[in-house]
Design a protein around this nucleic acid. Sequence first.
DNA 1: CAATTGATTAATGAATACAAAATATTGACG
DNA 2: CGTCAATATTTTGTATTCATTAATCAATTG
Lengths: 210, 210
Amino acid sequence: MLPREPLRDQVYLELLQRVQRGSITPGSRIRDTDIAKQLGVSRTPVREALIRLAREGTLDAEVGRGFRVRSLATEELREVGAILAVLEPLALDLVVEFPAERLTDLAAVARRLEQTRGDIDACIELDDEWHRLLLSDCPNRRLLTLIETLRQTPRRYLRHYLQQAGRLSLSTVHHGRIAEALRRGDRAAARGLLERRWTRGLEEIVSAFR
Amino acid sequence: MLPREPLRDQVYLELLQRVQRGSITPGSRIRDTDIAKQLGVSRTPVREALIRLAREGTLDAEVGRGFRVRSLATEELREVGAILAVLEPLALDLVVEFPAERLTDLAAVARRLEQTRGDIDACIELDDEWHRLLLSDCPNRRLLTLIETLRQTPRRYLRHYLQQAGRLSLSTVHHGRIAEALRRGDRAAARGLLERRWTRGLEEIVSAFR
DNA sequence: CAATTGATTAATGAATACAAAATATTGACG
DNA sequence: CGTCAATATTTTGTATTCATTAATCAATTG
């Protein structure tokens, strides 16, 4: 009965996706009983997942009143953005040497992204994949998982922005520029571009929330 | 029955302290049943606390085999150190203006630290307090709680270092230099000192582990 | 006597039960 | 009709129970 992956983790992933894909709207209440019934598991793993989601900022938890999806506030986006603006460049700095095949992989993902239109979630997933790949050679695993966790926040805002702006695809110029800098071996330039994404780049998304 | 502070949080704090003060040694197994009995609560809040501690890196969790205190590996210290080396300076950068009374508060804590000898845990607690105070005016709350969580890791290593080196107190020159830089209004210098603590300063602790 | 197997015990992950608090519902009265 | 209070229902946090797996230890065999 004890599976390799605990139920709490499976439930966590399922709920995270639901929130990120907008199938549970910000502000709405989440009852562990409902989720448990829907997923056919007991309340215990559900509530473990909810507690984790609350700690990571996806949900709000009020003692005695349960959980609800955290509503989008640009203040939060700016806070997390400021953190990622230093962590992602750090991760790039720590890469001792970029394997040649990595650039090929990046290009492949970028191409797939270019060809994806209409499916916002697929776009976001590919964009994520691209950045994950970019930093994947950083030996500081702890840093990578931290970045991964933090990125959940801007992801929600990005999705809302794309949806509201009626955009069907994601610009790839950002990826192109970084890849080019890396091809030139200009790590500093790549670093700068990565940072600017979380400073200047964020303002475009923020503006969608006026 | 529903308290303002959930049992899981109280249990979490209690266990965190036990691990940090070394009353549970690295590598030793933690049985939720034991803890529950000791604290007079049920297994549920205990295991919620254990899951959180595992996610934060204080414990190791193996599915079906429960939890144990993570043993000290300098690799982990270096990884977390590298992260804090950019996050703490960032927090200082974000402080828009340093209230005059903050310097007084810092001096007060530093003085208390100087007068504390023999009680390693008290020293570490005061050192923590000093740094918390230093960054407390940073408006990015998310960053502050992240730093607070990450700091749990080096804390364990620092304690082991002090104990092994047979030191009874903590040097205060570091605090003095930063405070002085701030008095001069030289934020860049303070920033640099704060960063160096997590780069160069860490090596002294690392050296105690072989 | 060491090593392996099998039975026993114990601990984990998940499910369920329970008590208190929060929310919803009903109905009396203006 | 609307307001408020009393009561019923739901929901939460915690405790307890259950099923299964891992750890332990004795017995057996090479």
